[in-house]
Computed example of a mutant assay.
Amino acid sequence: MGKSRKIVIVGCGEVGSTFAFTVLLKGLVNELILIDKNRKKALGDVLDLNHGLMLTQPVNIKAGGFEDCKDADIIVIAAGAAQMPGETRIDLMNRNVAIFREIIGEINKHNQSGILLVATNPVDILTQVALKLSGWKRGHVIGSGTLLDTSRFRYLIGDTLKVDPRSVHGLIIGEHGDSEVPLWSSLTVAGINVASNDPGSQFYLSPEQKDRIFHNTKNAAYQIIENKGATNYAIALALARICESILEDQKSILPVSCYLENYLGVSDVCLGVPAIIGKDGIEQIVSLPLSDTERELFQRSAGKLKELLTSIGF
């Protein structure tokens, strides 16, 4: 693996613990630190993970404190409050902002040069909160963005067309949430543009199929939570993919939550857009050719999030 690599995970809930397991399976690091306010949970996860080390690449895994953020390449924040019955989204955001103030204050005491990767929802809002609270370089604060949505989108398209989702090339951009935007105009399968309305096209998608695919993409989390209480596997894979691109300096183009300035008419907000991800985090944001409708929906998504940010003082 070469030089030492270190990931710190803050929050050992469903997402944090599954991500830790994914990092172990992929052999991404030499050192993996788990931090949780419930230290017993972190210790239990560490013990369980260490019991598999005979079967994986060597990794130093331990339960730690914020002092262990020192020299970390990537610090992943998966901690946050869950929404309570009757609680508004604004109330939830305010609680998570308070949690982030504490977490980021502690991180900043020990590390201001790594990459901060935010997984906690609402991820775009909290990515911007993390950026402003930390004072880190813009490219060093990344949200998981719409990478998970894009993976769901491609899976559903592949399932509909009966092709490998890795042969589907299309994006979801904007908010990781209800106002996300599917980019049908640039969707391709094996280089064939799917925007064609020709029913004779090999990879034709009817308007009804498109509506169903997008509906199931946007509402996937609700479906999963209704069935098992939380989402964890696919988001863990998405976080691991981002970390892999950073640690390996792969320059992969991934739709992550980035701070935008004059991007398709949008400024001063973090949203999911494609970006080149390498050792310096977000190294370049990729401009996209959008249809007029897609651009309007993207700008509307940005407007919605800016209103929410204003409501919580950001």
Rank of each mutant, 00 (worst) to 15 (best):
residue 59 V to H: 03
residue 25 L to Q: 03
residue 69 C to E: 05
residue 144 S to L: 07
residue 163 V to R: 03
residue 161 L to F: 02
residue 170 G to N: 01
residue 50 N to H: 04
residue 49 L to K: 05
residue 137 K to P: 04
residue 289 P to Y: 00
residue 141 V to P: 05
residue 255 P to W: 04
residue 312 I to F: 11
residue 196 S to A: 11
residue 168 V to F: 10
residue 2 G to M: 15
residue 53 L to R: 10
residue 126 L to M: 13
residue 64 G to V: 09
residue 206 S to R: 15
residue 95 R to P: 08
residue 59 V to F: 06
residue 297 L to T: 09
residue 88 T to R: 14
residue 76 V to E: 01
residue 60 N to V: 10
residue 106 E to Q: 13
residue 284 Q to F: 06
residue 236 A to F: 11
residue 53 L to T: 08
residue 180 E to I: 02
residue 30 N to F: 01
residue 124 D to A: 14
residue 146 T to F: 06
residue 291 S to R: 09
residue 204 Y to N: 11
residue 35 I to T: 07
residue 176 H to Y: 02
residue 113 S to N: 13
residue 198 D to Y: 13
residue 145 G to Q: 12
residue 261 E to P: 07
residue 1 M to I: 03
residue 79 A to G: 12
residue 14 E to T: 03
residue 297 L to K: 13
residue 31 E to A: 05
residue 142 I to T: 08
residue 70 K to G: 14
residue 135 G to F: 11
residue 154 R to T: 04
residue 283 E to W: 10
residue 159 D to K: 14
residue 242 I to T: 09
residue 67 E to G: 01
residue 52 G to P: 04
residue 99 I to D: 02
residue 129 V to T: 12
residue 106 E to S: 13
residue 310 T to D: 05
residue 159 D to T: 10
residue 288 L to Q: 14
residue 188 T to D: 06
residue 159 D to H: 07
residue 48 D to G: 02
residue 26 K to I: 01
residue 79 A to T: 11
residue 245 S to E: 04
residue 108 N to S: 05
residue 174 G to R: 09
residue 274 P to E: 05
residue 241 R to P: 00
residue 262 N to F: 00
residue 211 D to C: 07
residue 9 I to D: 02
residue 306 K to M: 13
residue 83 Q to F: 00
residue 224 I to N: 13
residue 209 Q to N: 14
residue 253 I to T: 15
residue 161 L to Y: 01
residue 213 I to Q: 03
residue 281 G to Q: 09
residue 119 A to H: 08
residue 258 C to K: 08
residue 72 A to K: 08
residue 152 R to K: 08
residue 294 E to M: 09
residue 256 V to Q: 12
residue 216 N to I: 10
residue 234 A to Q: 08
residue 232 N to S: 15
residue 167 S to E: 07
residue 91 D to W: 00
residue 40 K to A: 11
residue 238 A to V: 09
residue 190 A to E: 10
residue 67 E to W: 01
residue 163 V to I: 12
residue 287 S to W: 01
residue 285 I to Q: 14
residue 237 L to K: 09
residue 259 Y to H: 15
residue 40 K to G: 03
residue 211 D to K: 15
residue 130 A to I: 11
residue 295 R to E: 04
residue 114 G to C: 06
residue 83 Q to G: 04
residue 215 H to W: 07
residue 296 E to A: 14
residue 135 G to I: 12
residue 56 T to L: 13
residue 238 A to D: 04
residue 208 E to M: 13
residue 160 T to Q: 05
residue 113 S to E: 11
residue 213 I to N: 03
residue 74 I to C: 10
residue 223 Q to C: 13
residue 125 I to L: 12
residue 277 I to L: 12
residue 294 E to F: 07
